[in-house]
């Protein structure tokens, strides 16, 4: 049986099939948690907030406009929730421009990796820390898109819709963001 689209799942939930919401959660849970983790720099808090985001989305499901993508709506809710949380913490810099210098994101975690060898075995804490720092040091406009693309795993089109930017601008900014990262991480991205 063909996989139902997000919009079909939403309609099924509104029609009373609440288990379809589980499918939506399973479909997006890793992406939302990873995105929030990047924004909040705290995995436990990211997981807790991701649950809250899904509950908020569930509550407001009847206000979902099917002329937009569900994913962009979900990530907009997630982004707003993260910004609110950051404001509450009084750490304005985290979501905007101030570069992160420490490794408070949890450098001791074991990161699962699905990369090809030799980079698939990339569990090197030093390298992981360097990448996190490099992403954090990007200017906000680039970092935000890098986070949406590489942690939220949104497509270029989804990012363009979410950020209300022309698709070409998204492509250019991601290109430049990646080039900046590649430049900063030159020492870590070799054999």
């Amino acid at each position: 049986m063909a996989q139902r689209t997000d919009e079909e799942l939403v309609q099924a939930i509104l029609d009373g099939d609440e288990e379809s919401f589980r499918d939506l959660v399973l479909r997006y849970q890793n992406r939302v948690v990873n995105y929030l983790n990047r924004m909040l720099r705290d995995l436990d808090e990211a997981q807790e907030l991701a649950q809250e985001v899904f509950v908020r989305v569930y509550r407001a499901l009847d206000r979902f406009d099917p002329s937009y993508r569900f994913s962009t709506w979900l990530f907009r809710v997630a982004q707003n929730a993260a910004i609110d949380r950051i404001r509450k913490r009084r750490l304005v810099m985290v979501s905007l421009n101030r570069p992160e210098t420490g490794s408070s994101e949890g450098g001791e975690w074991e990161f699962p990796s699905d990369c090809p060898t030799p980079y698939g075995e990339l569990r090197n804490l030093e390298r992981g820390g360097a990448i996190r720092r490099a992403v954090a040091e990007l200017k906000g406009e680039y970092r935000e898109l890098i986070e949406l693309r590489h942690f939220g795993e949104l497509s270029y089109e989804e990012i363009a819709e979410l950020k209300e930017m022309p698709l070409g601008t998204v492509k250019n900014k991601l290109f430049r963001g990646r080039q900046m990262l590649k430049g900063k991480l030159a020492d870590y991205l070799t054999d």
Binding site: V33, I131, L189
Partner: peptide, 18 residues
């Protein structure tokens, strides 16, 4: 390599999340 490096930072949520 950059893409792999970034991807290695992604985490998987616990099975009980949903």
């Amino acid at each position: 390599r950059l893409q792999c490096g970034i991807a290695s930072l992604r985490v998987s949520v616990p099975a009980s999340f949903a």
